[in-house]
């Protein structure tokens, strides 16, 4: 049986609105195993971002249990939660949230600044991570000199900085064009396959969600449906024109250069 990195039991979160309490999450039970790539889908207001904030210890649940890497974090005080965020969680945001006055390396170094890691080690690791996400040679660029896709890659490298137990991605492709969207999801898939990084990704995009192993559907703060995803990064793709089936290194067919789609006989979401 796979080891659970994240497990919630009857997790709930309500927001006070005047005298009323509005539920954002209701008795949510969820388990994410080590090395899993889980997508959470749902319409606007379904509680996706609240779920991610609670899972990421940015917000406290109002009820239930939440075990993260064997630690019950639901009732931890803020004085200890920052350590959980620092060491066990990596965040990827829709708007990248890089600090504009720092260059790529400095942005990636940032989560390591509060650790006891020596400065040169931090710098070296940041460079390695930037290389991993395909930004070698762009280390000294500030965010404004990078494209949206590149900025998100820096954010991914930053999320990996402290070798977290889990990466939480909130609409990581929401601000990207189609080409970059595909590349970023593929990068997340690659990290999941090659490094065994556990990823929970919130998205409202079917195509993006299809890259995950498991897709959870959230509605009114509850998981209403769960399906197996294609985890396309692990699957073969098919060229819609020439019919070639390949394990692609990019999104275009190497023979006719057409954009690839999932192979027909595979189950689609």
């Amino acid at each position: 049986m796979s080891e659970a990195v994240l497990k919630t039991e009857n997790l709930s979160k309500t927001y006070p609105m005047g005298k009323r309490k509005v539920p954002a999450l209701s008795d949510l039970n969820l388990q994410v195993n080590k090395g899993e790539f889980v997508a959470v889908m749902g319409p606007s207001g379904s509680g996706k971002t609240t779920l991610l904030n609670v899972l990421g210890c940015l917000d406290k649940p109002t009820g239930g249990k939440m075990i993260l890497d064997k630690v019950d974090v639901a009732n931890l005080p803020e004085k200890q939660l920052y350590k959980i965020r620092r060491n066990k969680i990596g965040f990827i945001f829709q708007t990248f949230n890089l600090l504009p006055y720092l260059n790529a390396v400095e942005n990636v170094e940032l989560p390591m600044e509060c650790t006891r890691k020596p400065r040169n080690e931090r710098k070296q690791k940041a460079r390695e991570l930037l290389g991993l996400v395909g930004l070698a040679g762009r280390e000294e660029h500030r965010p404004q000199r990078l494209s949206a896709g590149e900025q998100q890659r820096v954010a991914i490298a930053r999320a990996l900085a402290n070798d977290p137990a889990i990466i939480l991605a909130d609409e990581p492709t929401g601000n990207l064009d189609t080409k970059n969207k595909f590349e970023i999801v593929k990068l997340l898939g690659t990290l999941n396959i090659e490094r065994g990084t556990t990823i929970v990704m919130v998205t409202h995009d079917n195509q993006v969600a299809s890259h995950a192993e498991r897709v959870l559907f959230l509605n009114d703060g509850r998981i209403t449906k769960e399906k197996q995803g294609l985890h396309l990064a692990k699957k073969k793709l098919q060229c819609p024109y020439c019919g070639s089936r390949i394990q692609p290194k990019d999104e275009r067919c190497p023979s006719c250069r057409k954009k690839l789609v999932p192979a027909e006989e595979e189950e689609s979401i």
Partner: peptide
């Protein structure tokens, strides 16, 4: 927002 980002990536209140 920057404070939020820093806290999200592990900065403590004291930091």
């Amino acid at each position: 927002k920057e404070i939020g980002i820093l806290k999200a990536i592990g900065f403590s209140g004291w930091n």
